[in-house]
Simulated assay, not measured.
Amino acid sequence: MTTPPRRTPVQGMRRGVLACGLFGTLALTVVGALAKGSDGALSALAGALLAFVVILVGLLAITVIVDGDPAVSMAGAGVVYLGQLILLVGALLALHGASWLDGEITAFSAVVATVLLQAGQVTGYVRSRHVIYPQAGRA
């Protein structure tokens, strides 16, 4: 008799990130265009897509962590979150001197997109059905 595969919250988190990421990227690009024209739209799009990619890569890492030992999954997810923020700030600092981007719009867009993406990720986690402590029923 085989045990059924463990349900993880990652699929719900992915749905939340994709929904918020697509909506947020579109909305922030429009706001950037209204604020500073085509340069603002490009800068807002760059910031939002940067945050979107960083959060999606973090979800891949969380998938690996959740498949491992359940006792360390929350600590591992915390490390991934911290790594995402460090990577995002590093990328923004690297793009700071780019002449083709408006730094303020890019940074604003990246910060707002990160908050939206994290809200989508948390909402997906909360709404997903998964076992909190899989060893609870075993003796």
Results as ranks from 00 to 15, higher is better:
residue 109 S to E: 02
residue 94 A to L: 15
residue 12 G to F: 13
residue 67 D to M: 02
residue 12 G to S: 12
residue 46 A to Q: 03
residue 123 T to V: 04
residue 18 L to P: 00
residue 83 G to P: 02
residue 107 A to R: 05
residue 110 A to V: 09
residue 23 F to C: 08
residue 35 A to T: 14
residue 62 I to E: 15
residue 1 M to Y: 07
residue 51 A to D: 05
residue 23 F to N: 05
residue 30 V to D: 04
residue 119 A to H: 09
residue 87 L to I: 07
residue 10 V to Y: 01
residue 116 L to W: 08
residue 116 L to S: 07
residue 42 L to G: 02
residue 73 S to N: 05
residue 106 T to N: 00
residue 3 T to P: 12
residue 99 S to A: 14
residue 58 G to K: 04
residue 5 P to L: 13
residue 72 V to H: 12
residue 29 T to Y: 03
residue 68 G to P: 02
residue 29 T to R: 01
residue 76 G to T: 08
residue 73 S to Y: 07
residue 70 P to H: 06
residue 16 G to P: 05
residue 101 L to W: 02
residue 131 V to P: 00
residue 37 G to H: 02
residue 77 A to S: 14
residue 12 G to A: 13
residue 94 A to C: 05
residue 138 R to I: 15
residue 86 I to M: 12
residue 129 R to G: 13
residue 102 D to Q: 15
residue 85 L to I: 14
residue 65 I to Q: 03
residue 103 G to L: 03
residue 113 A to G: 07
residue 64 V to W: 14
residue 84 Q to W: 11
residue 1 M to I: 04
residue 127 R to A: 15
residue 87 L to E: 09
residue 44 A to N: 06
residue 119 A to D: 00
residue 39 D to T: 06
residue 102 D to G: 07
residue 82 L to M: 06
residue 91 A to Y: 09
residue 6 R to M: 10
residue 25 T to H: 03
residue 120 G to Y: 14
residue 71 A to E: 06
residue 59 L to S: 04
residue 90 G to K: 06
residue 41 A to D: 08
residue 136 A to H: 12
